[in-house]
Design a protein around this nucleic acid. Structure first.
Lengths: 362, 362
DNA sequence: ATCGAATTTGAGACCGGTCTCACAACCAAA
DNA sequence: TTTGGTTGTGAGACCGGTCTCAAATTCGAT
């Protein structure tokens, strides 16, 4: 802490002195506020140019109270879903001259809390969060109560009355699952990377992430509709890139009563599943069908290409950012909950259930 | 500007008053510097807890001169290469309690300049940049001269004596190309998303991005080594996700003297090429071979899987961040230029050149 | 009991901006 | 010429911390 790298930067006072005006006047022209005569303005500008003055945004923020940046806390930037959403956010932010401070929660509540604390200490003007756990939202409630506007991305929180942008997860899952049930599948597995707190037991209350819960609900709706019983047992949590989950997927696929169709909650999970299916020597769609959320770039180039639930990810990010920025600008309409539509892109990864004898097909 | 959202936050003075000590003393315990007696310390802490005091990081930065954050300017976060690198950076940063302000340049120098200006105004403690153009580096030189440490990621700048982390692009391209020449290919196309300023004319001086230049140099080395003439003509710039470039790729593939092998400069380009190859009804690797830089996740799941140049992307990001942070901490060793090794993962996308009659193969 | 040294504390300047307020200068209308 | 309203400018407080410096206190050693 004993190293003030003292880059003796040029301040308003320096400029003022050189332009032979008061600090206040120089500040007025440099800061672009108040009224100044033309002559003085040019003099100050001239002096500023000569001295190569650059405003200290920090000092400015100190007095104005607004920092000109927003904080974004996502689960994992490495996930294409988030990186695309972040792209949407930062594009929207740049348009308003606002910049983005990014933080990764790694889907860990503690990391999320800490990130939020840090960002607020940095006086961000607003916060966009994809809450890792719907159970623990005390810290979010606190933010919402504070003067710092909060907006939620991809995951809603009924208890949190803030701007929220999500997709029609439940309906999307319903429609996706229907495609599978209509193809005759009855053993459909649902795989998500989300972790479960405690056991599932078919109760949705324990599901941490709202989008995950909604999707599962939609999945179960469709199963019920098709008269499939005990579909809950085929929901698998904690799928992802880890060794453990990979092994679990293999085990699942090698069971004699393995699912004949799988719905994956995101493209990262889907990729792992796709690999596992191959490694088990199964064929898509003859032996097993696959649908995934998120139209990741790779899904169209596999053999066969994968049927996906296409979410407007970029728009999702752009939209929350716009909502938040509108709020920063003083809009105090009641919070909006935008639900964006998804569409299913049918490709070649869904086939008739192998359980149904060929001749039985209409 | 007339809306000071006056969240009357708790300041040191408030805490001091409540703890019945001076502002200076309260600041000492809250800021964790100087010496304070045990009794006073607990009293202040108690008061702080009651009032729910949160330090204003901005104010702190004002006096200390260090903001505790670094700026990162990348070409495009949406590109998996960058999002993974950013992940590496932010992981390393978090370990040092530093946060990351992210900016997209969209590979546009002007946007890059503006981003750097903003970040410096925000008093970032350091800057990590992937320079969009090696031609225009005046702004970078300026940063390097200022007190703000600068580090370069993925793209070197010989004229810029700062910490730099890159991969052995030239050698990697050489080795990748050799795989193709050894398979008998003589018409090898090199596709990169980079734009060229002016015409190529076989001179490397006009190539904007150092990594791109190095790779092209390596590519040409290998071609020369294999006795291939006029390889420069097969280098195509501006490939990417745009309509125009897509059409150009199609045209290229439909020519009678189309390349029998393609080396793609990044995974985004490669994906487009892969799609185009399919759409043209060509088969990999029988009709055309493909190698790409960056071991993107999808490259292993296509049919056939793609041979890639595997760059240690995450490590790349982690490494620059560590280098930069070391510098922030006062290290003043001469700038380091780290060149990380790449390895080629041979998969199934390279075949013998169809130009060579079957029987001619040894 | 006495003195010097070490420790603890408080007062106030400072960082680099913004912004309020008072004063001076100017102009046009009365 | 006086009056009143605008406009331009400067002095200085302020934001919320850090940090210097000197005064006050404590302490051990003589």
């Amino acid at each position: 802490m004993k190293r003030p790298p003292k880059a003796p930067s040029i301040t308003v006072s320096d400029v003022a002195r050189r332009a032979k005006v008061s600090k206040a006047t120089a500040a007025r022209v440099l800061g672009g506020y108040g009224r100044v005569s033309k002559t003085v303005r040019t003099a100050v500008l001239e002096a500023a140019k000569v001295l190569d003055y650059r405003p200290n945004e920090l000092a400015r923020s100190m007095t104005t109270g607004r920092s000109g940046s927003i904080g974004v806390v996502v689960g994992d930037i490495e996930n294409p879903f988030f990186s695309l959403a972040v792209r949407g956010i930062s594009d929207a932010a740049r348009l308003s001259g606002i910049n983005v401070i990014l933080a990764n929660s790694g889907e860990q509540v503690e990391a999320e809390k800490s990130a939020i604390r840090v960002l607020m200490a940095k006086q961000v003007d607003g916060l966009i969060v994809t809450p890792a756990q719907s159970g623990e939202i005390a810290h979010l409630v606190e933010v919402a109560r504070s003067a710092c506007p909060l907006a939620l991305l991809d995951r809603a929180q009924p208890d949190l009355d803030v701007d929220t942008v999500t997709v029609d997860d439940r309906d999307a899952a319903l429609r996706a699952t229907r495609i599978l049930t209509r193809a005759g599948h009855t053993r459909i597995g649902y795989l998500t990377a989300a972790e479960l707190s405690g056991d599932f037991c078919g109760s949705d209350s324990k599901i941490n992430t709202s989008s995950v819960r909604e999707r599962i609900l939609g999945f179960l709706d469709a199963c019920r509709e098709a008269g499939i019983e005990g579909a809950e047992r085929n929901i698998h949590f904690g799928a992802g890139r880890s060794e453990r989950s990979l092994a679990a997927t293999h085990t699942l696929l090698e069971r004699s009563d393995r699912p004949t169709a799988i719905l994956a909650s995101d493209s990262v999970v889907a990729l792992e599943v796709f690999k596992a299916i191959r490694e088990c020597g199964l064929r898509i769609p003859q032996d097993i069908s696959l649908i995934t959320f998120h139209d990741a770039d790779w899904t169209s180039v596999t053999t066969p290409p994968i049927t996906v639930v296409d979410q407007p990810v970029y728009a999702l990010g752009k939209c929350v950012a716009e909502l938040l920025i509108r709020r920063l600008k003083g809009d105090d309409r009641p919070p909006e909950r935008v639900v964006m539509p998804t569409r299913i892109i049918e490709r070649m990864s869904v086939g008739q259930s192998p359980d149904i004898p060929r001749q039985a097909i209409s």
